[in-house]
């Protein structure tokens, strides 16, 4: 069941994390863990081995690009979706080259987020 999969939500904004968690739980995804910056995301990834990571790009301490790079170094099959703002296409392209499997644009569109997550988790369980 894709809905049992563990999802790591990484964003330095507690508000943004709550918005995403709310969307996920309302849609039956209950195995959610959180990280408030890139450093925490890398640590959580090692410890929790989530099935999917949602990664914000602009964060203090360690940004999303560096965290993505570090996670991909440890697990080249990591499923990471980056969350960018409109206009950050160059950074998104850089993330895709580094191994990100998808991206969503903030403010998050519920439908698009769910489609992207389902697609990724399904691919992962194949």
């Amino acid at each position: 069941m894709t809905k049992d999969k563990k999802i790591l939500v990484t964003d330095d904004s507690i508000f943004a994390r709550e918005v995403i968690k709310d969307i996920l739980t309302r849609n039956g995804y209950n195995n959610i863990i959180e990280a408030a910056d890139g450093i925490e995301a890398v640590e959580m990834y090692e410890k929790e081995n989530p099935d999917l990571v949602l990664m914000d790009l602009i964060m203090d301490k360690m940004d999303g690009v560096e965290a993505l790079e570090k996670i991909m170094e440890k697990d080249k099959n990591a499923q990471i979706i980056v969350a960018s703002a409109v206009g950050q296409e160059t950074i998104v392209n850089q993330c895709m080259k580094l191994g990100s499997k998808g991206y969503i644009v903030k403010p998050v569109d519920e439908k698009k987020l769910l489609i992207e997550i389902k697609k990724m988790l399904r691919k992962n369980s194949d």
């Binding site: 507690i14 206009g87 403010p107």
Partner: peptide, 16 residues
């Protein structure tokens, strides 16, 4: 955090 996100959204739209 909600106010920061609002700033993020408006600011990004302008920078874009």
């Amino acid at each position: 955090s909600a106010l920061e996100e609002t700033q993020n959204i408006i600011g990004n739209a302008y920078l874009n």
